[in-house]
Design a protein around this nucleic acid. Structure first.
Lengths: 222, 222
DNA sequence: ACTTACTTAACACGAAAATGTGATTATTCG
DNA sequence: CGAATAATCACATTTTCGTGTTAAGTAAGT
């Protein structure tokens, strides 16, 4: 579990205000004590459920909010982050959980969490991660980072079926994907609409689809 | 905050073989000396350009390749990674550069780099990053991680125009995006095809589009 | 010189989609 | 309780799309 921090930031030692949303009493109290016992950090609020947090945090306006995933009641930490982030885009959220699976990670990041660390993280590293987050970093273990990177790489590689298309066909497909009518494509590429039809037909055959939408979906790897 | 689990390689101290692709002679030699001088690491090849690396690395098969961005000759480090990764998916690539801008980062990750660290990284951290990479992590500074996360979040936020759609309309749009015919949508949702037609019509009006493809493009925020 | 593949083009037919207009139930909300 | 919104169904017309078939000119490679 390594977090490389760009700068250790002893310079501007302004106090970072922190809120904690965590249902487990022991963990919550331990974190509160840790944060309040460390210079440069202040825990200004703790909550054991999302609903209360959602109500109080807008008044407290902490710099950083630590969020557990599982919370009692109808709302989980992800949803709680999403709502708060929508209203306070500058507030920084750190997901603090035991889950390491892709779904949870991506959901959290999409909801607006910028940091994602595991509960087994040491007190020292937690403090460092909080500061890191506050200063514009995205603290996460390199294991977590790998998941995110893998997602990137998966997204990047195009459907190999597209390679079977000729350059002209790719051009046509690109026009199709942009929603142009056949006659528009024909006029854009200075060819007859019948030729467009033929190309489209060949494209559909090669991609094994029977409609524009399916072809475009393959084009975008969905 | 209980368990302290430092993922140092306590288990098998197998030697990690490393190749270096870097045109600057001083940096290259310094890294080579660092790696060969450290237990558990072996530098089995160094190259000052992409072409030679592309030719030799397939014979050396290092565990990890450190890649500079700027290289003399026609090929840069990104392209070099892309080609090698395509042939050797298990080989791990670390981008080692001075650039911190989004484009370079994303390009490197898409090409297949799993680690991305800056040249100013300390020798100790470099070694740690190499081992980390070899063990399945994605070492990167939290600043770099933030860029990646930001990309995620940007991708996530849906087109606000979609909010104007009713839940039923969103449901229809989702079916449209999957390429279903009207009659298939009708049967999937247990409604008449005429109702589907009507919903589609309303959707198009709200999204200001005139075709399925345009609607789907808006749905996917394109 | 002879394939093979790509691009271009035309015509016809039926299926599907888009447009326009109208109308009947639920549901929600002040 | 009314009013607004959402969801449902219907019919007619026009346009676009998908498919089948045929074929000529070009470029690349054996």
């Amino acid at each position: 579990m390594t977090v490389y921090s760009k700068k250790k930031s002893q310079d501007s030692m302004d106090v970072i205000s922190v809120a904690i949303v965590e249902d487990n009493h022991d963990i919550r109290t331990a974190m509160e004590l840790l944060i309040n016992g460390s210079e440069g950090y202040a825990c200004i609020g703790t909550f054991n459920n999302a609903e209360t947090a959602l109500e109080q945090i807008p008044h407290l306006l902490p710099n950083v909010a630590l969020m557990d995933f599982n919370l009692p009641g109808g709302m989980n930490g992800i949803e709680c982050i999403a709502r708060l982030k929508a209203e306070f885009p500058d507030m920084q959220f750190m997901m603090l959980t035991v889950y390491e699976d892709d779904d949870k990670i991506f959901q959290a990041l999409e909801a607006g969490a910028s940091g994602y660390i595991l509960k087994k993280t040491s007190p020292g590293e937690l403090l460092e991660a909080i500061r890191d987050l506050h200063e514009g970093g995205s603290p996460m273990s390199s294991q977590i980072a790998r998941r995110v990177v893998a997602y990137f790489q998966k997204q990047a590689k195009p459907n190999p079926a597209l390679e079977a298309l000729t350059s002209r066909e790719k051009e046509i497909l690109d026009q199709l994907s942009k929603g142009f009518l056949y006659k528009e494509i024909a006029s854009n590429l200075y060819i007859s609409i019948e030729t467009v039809r033929r190309h489209v037909h060949n494209i559909y055959e090669k991609l094994h689809v029977r409609s524009r939408t399916d072809a475009v979906n393959k084009y975008y790897n969905r």
